[in-house]
């Protein structure tokens, strides 16, 4: 038993982000395989809507879908409405960036961390929604 454990191949080694300070500890990123980013036809993937509502002013925003550190899809909007990502999986992140001159509300149509809807005051809109 001990022998088999000894001979077992080590799991794929995590790659850390290079920093100028060797003592720092950063978040680990797993290695990517050929199938890791495939969402088409995956049973656990689902369409997700991101709805932007601009109140008392105008706004402009971009929603970016990331999977395992890779940009999968990016869509922009410049008035109240929705963008749809057709194949979203758990652990994906939807990054929201933009500006609103009034109040803005962003709603993601699935469970996320942080929870949506998220309300923004006039100014920059910045959030990263982790799909649960």
């Amino acid at each position: 038993m001990a022998k088999s454990a000894k001979n077992k191949k080590p799991a794929s080694r995590a790659r850390s982000i290079p920093t100028s300070n060797a003592k720092t500890k950063t978040m680990t990123i797993p290695e990517l395989s050929a199938n890791a980013l495939v969402a088409e036809g995956a049973p656990h993937s689902k369409p997700v809507d991101v709805t932007f509502t601009f109140i008392g002013g105008i706004g402009q925003a971009t929603a970016v879908l990331f999977r395992k550190g890779v940009l999968i899809n990016m869509q922009s909007i410049s008035n109240t409405g929705s963008v749809t990502f057709s194949e979203v999986q758990s652990s994906d992140v939807i990054s929201v960036n933009g500006v609103c001159t009034g109040k803005a509300q962003v709603t993601v149509s699935t469970t996320t961390t942080p929870a949506s809807p998220k309300t923004f005051n006039p100014g920059l809109m910045m959030a990263n929604f982790l799909i649960k």
Partner: peptide, 18 residues
């Protein structure tokens, strides 16, 4: 600030375990 937010979003998507 917006660029930082986007890049951090990408980094978070690559973290495991859940």
């Amino acid at each position: 600030l917006l660029t930082l937010n986007t890049i951090i979003g990408g980094k978070i998507s690559a973290i495991s375990p859940a």
